[in-house]
Amino acid sequence: MSPKISAKSVDLTFSTNDGPVDALKDVNLDINEGDFVSFIGPSGCGKTTFLRVLADLERPTGGTVEINGVSPKIARESRAYGYVFQAPGLYPWRSIGKNIKLPLEIIGLSKHEQSERVKRVLKLVDLQDFENKFPWQLSGGMQQRASIARALAFDADILLMDEPFGALDEIVRDHLNEQLLDLWKTTSKTICFVTHSIPEAVYLSTKIVVMSPRPGRIIDFIESTLPNERPLDIRDSSEFISISQRVREGLRSGHSYE
């Protein structure tokens, strides 16, 4: 089976006022269909940049990236993925329902199909009663759930998520993590998930990519041994703790604290 997403010796150098910065250096990675992959590392390690390269929001300066066997640009144009940003990024002048319809309008689906899908994805994220509310009438956690619904609405089988729960408090975050796992199991999507929380990465993922800054690179690749069925208290198990330790050691070795 050919990988869903494949990156071969990807480099990305930004030119800044202080000279060139290596955001990504020789990144090699294969992601299979149905994987839940977390990218973890300190800020500046290139995890968000890598996600943006997959989404064709940045162009790599070297190497090749293929999504479904084609370039990121073609993948984007065929709407192969849904993207969830750090902030909800909902348009304040549109109701929740209309926000979810936004990509559907752009793709050009029929009105009937649009409302069908809105109903379906709102149910997935448990926001059925909020279709006609405006984003600013909702709490931060609900807004982020709405933005996930928006990314699910056009049925792409890849979901790219850039620290979607970073700004939320721990209780809300736990709840959303549980919901996200449910969603992943029922929809069997391929998910790339950027985070800087070790428990979040270990709890969610089938594979964990540990990254390190200057230059941004992969320093460890961990296949999770946790079962697919994961109640919240799995985080107290010894298996969970040992994977967490491996991630932490990886982060420590890559971080020089200069």
């Binding site: 989404a55 064709d56 929001l57 984007r76 144009e77 065929s78 709407r79 993925y81 849904g82 993207y83 940003f85 990024g89 348009y91 936004l102 990509p103 752009i106 793709i107």
Partner: peptide, 9 residues
């Protein structure tokens, strides 16, 4: 918001 529009092509 701009990036979002780009991801929708």
């Amino acid at each position: 918001q701009n990036d979002l529009m780009r991801t929708y092509a």
